[in-house]
């Protein structure tokens, strides 16, 4: 099972309690993401797709249900242990890029690596390579404010790749970009996927979703259509 299935969610629930009112955002979601898969999570706003992405990315804990990472149940891990897992195995790309404004492109790419065990020298070497790969070799010393939106998102993608993650989570990665730039960014993600990393992406944009191999539709906290292989009893 651990061979091809990277992440498995088993009957995951997520309930937010706000001002004494329970809001059930996820209602028993079971889902598997395999190695090298490019998955799009789609659904209208409020459907729970972002929460699902956060849970898959170990940024939030499920209220109930199990999370298996390469077959190991990590649901009960402490926060810092989850930080370490995110750092080692996951990369993140956000709609608003979230680059550190006072750090150069290179330093931004290095950031997750510097929280890991690898030496700075080999990290810098790879960061340069990654910047070259996203077409920004000559912008390494630029601050985010000196870069266009598309360039900033490329820096963010390079940052997501620095620790050679198994999965990249992308939350509306093209949400702030024009359509030509969006296509470039999606092509970049698709290329990364063919080189072995899984990608889980939230989007409400059909053109963007078209780059994915598998499209999971979510409505009211339930999986409507799990778009392909994997256990989908829901």
């Amino acid at each position: 099972m651990a061979g091809s299935l990277l992440i498995e969610l088993d009957r995951v629930e997520k309930t937010y309690v706000q001002a004494g009112v329970d809001t059930r955002v996820l209602r028993g979601v079971s889902l598997a993401v395999g190695r090298g898969e490019f998955v799009a999570l789609q659904g209208p706003s409020g459907s729970g797709k972002s929460t699902l992405l956060h849970i898959l990315g170990l940024l939030e804990r499920p209220t109930a249900g199990r999370y298996l990472l390469s077959g190991e149940d990590v649901s009960g891990f402490a926060d810092d242990r989850l930080s370490e897992l995110r750092n080692r195995h996951f990369g993140f790309v956000f709609q608003s890029f979230y680059l550190i404004p006072y750090a150069s492109a290179l330093e931004n790419v290095l950031l997750p690596g510097l929280y890991g065990p690898e030496s700075r020298r080999s990290l810098e070497h790879r960061a340069q390579e990654l910047l070259a790969r996203v077409g920004l070799a000559d912008r390494a010393s630029f601050k985010p404010s000196q870069l266009s939106g598309g360039q900033q998102q490329r820096v963010a993608i390079a940052r997501a790749l620095i620790n050679q993650p198994a999965v990249i989570f992308a939350d509306e990665p093209t949400g702030q970009l024009d359509s030509a730039t969006s296509a470039e960014i999606m092509q970049l993600l698709a290329d990364i996927c063919t080189q072995g990393a899984s990608i889980v992406m939230v989007t409400h944009d059909e053109e963007t979703a078209a780059f994915a191999q598998r499209r999971i539709r979510i409505l009211d906290g339930r999986i409507l259509d799990n778009g392909g292989p994997g256990p989908a009893e829901g």
């Binding site: 926060d79 930080s83 750092n87 080692r88 929280y115």
Partner: peptide, 8 residues
């Protein structure tokens, strides 16, 4: 920083 793996 926390999302990208910084410990508390």
């Amino acid at each position: 920083r926390k999302a990208l793996g910084a410990a508390t």
